[in-house]
C-alpha cells in the first residue's frame, strides 16, 4: 500500500519522479548553478547534487525574489527539477511556480515532510488533490 501524505492544494500538473530530499531551504538564486543543474552553495546540504528532473523535497524558501523569474527560465531551458515539495513556501516560490507552471505543493498534515520522504523514493504528486504518494515503499 503506497504511503500518501496530504497537503494544501498546489500548483501545476500531476507528475511522478525521483525524490531528492534535504532538511534545508531553497533559493534558485542563492543555491543553484542553473547552467550545470547542480546545487552550488557550499553550505547547502545538497551541495554538488544534480537536481535535473528530480522532485526536490525541502523545508522552506529563502530570501530572493529572483526565483520568481528563474523557475520559468529553468523550465524553459530543460535544466529544471520536475517538481518542488516544501513544508512551507514563501510567496516568491508560489508566484514562480505559477509563472513557470512548475508543479509545487506545501503545507502538509505531517509536521515535516523532509523526514518522511527519502532521496531516491519514487514519488507521485497530485497538486489538485493536495496529495503526495511514495510509490516504492509501504
Amino acid at each position: 500500500m503506497p504511503i500518501v501524505y496530504r497537503c494544501h492544494p498546489g500548483i501545476g500538473a500531476a507528475v511522478t519522479g525521483t525524490a531528492l530530499v534535504a532538511e534545508d531551504n531553497f533559493s534558485a538564486r542563492y543555491d543553484l548553478d542553473r547552467k550545470k543543474g547542480v546545487f552550488s552553495r557550499p553550505a547547502h546540504k545538497l551541495f554538488g547534487e544534480d537536481y535535473r528532473d528530480k522532485i526536490l523535497v525541502l523545508n522552506t524558501a529563502k530570501g530572493g525574489v529572483a526565483s520568481a523569474w528563474m523557475l520559468r527560465e529553468m523550465v524553459q531551458s530543460g535544466i529544471t527539477p520536475k517538481a518542488l515539495v516544501f513544508n512551507t513556501v514563501n510567496t516568491i516560490l508560489a508566484q514562480g511556480g505559477a509563472f513557470a507552471d512548475l508543479t509545487m505543493v506545501d503545507r502538509f498534515e505531517c509536521p515535516n515532510i523532509t523526514t518522511q520522504i527519502r532521496s531516491g523514493d519514487e514519488v507521485h504528486i497530485d497538486p489538485e488533490k493536495g496529495e503526495v504518494t511514495v510509490l516504492n515503499r509501504d
Partner: peptide
Amino acid sequence: MADTEATGSSG
C-alpha cells in the same frame, strides 16, 4: 525586480 541575470533570455 527584473534584472536580466534573473529573467534570463526567456523572461
